[in-house]
Amino acid sequence: MSPFLFWIFALLTLIFGAAVVINRNPVASALSLVVSFLGLAALFMSLNAYFIGIIQVLVYAGAVMVLFLFIIMLLNLRAEEARRINWLATAGGVAVALILLGQIFSVISHLKFAQNPFPPLAGLTVDDVRNIGAVLFRNYNLPFQIVGVLVLVATVGVVLLSKREPR
């Protein structure tokens, strides 16, 4: 992928990521997050990680955020828009973010691997779906199954909690 496209999608992700925090309207925040996810998915795809990219869209943008939006729309969050901005807290947040950014930058600049250029991608011949499947079901089968059971337990718990008591 050309650097031009990389910068477009990276900027898209960052700008809309910031918009999630800056927007006072919860629905606008949620939609900004969706656009941010789409930009992130495009960055994944630029690394030939099509599966991760598309799952990013399918799960986060397509399902999780729809549920978020669903809840946000049902609640009346008009009060949030009217609230005044606490400048002290904002300054503190920005300071924390800047310190974190500086730390990440200094760590990466001292890392030896970061000095090397990024190795060229293997090209379109790699089937990342097959690779992910192979790794997941051969090397990490047990953790995968455990995660599956965990999710099942959570699902059963939700069904039980939301079930109406028989009278």
Binding site: V27, I54, A61, G62, L69
Partner: peptide, 25 residues
């Protein structure tokens, strides 16, 4: 001809709900 063809279909189709939800809201 992407190697995640059907997932692409589902992912993009799942974005279709936004048009309706945002329009309604």
């Amino acid at each position: 001809d992407v190697n995640v063809g059907i997932l692409f279909v589902f992912a993009i189709a799942s974005l279709g709900v936004y048009g309706i939800v945002i329009g309604g809201w």
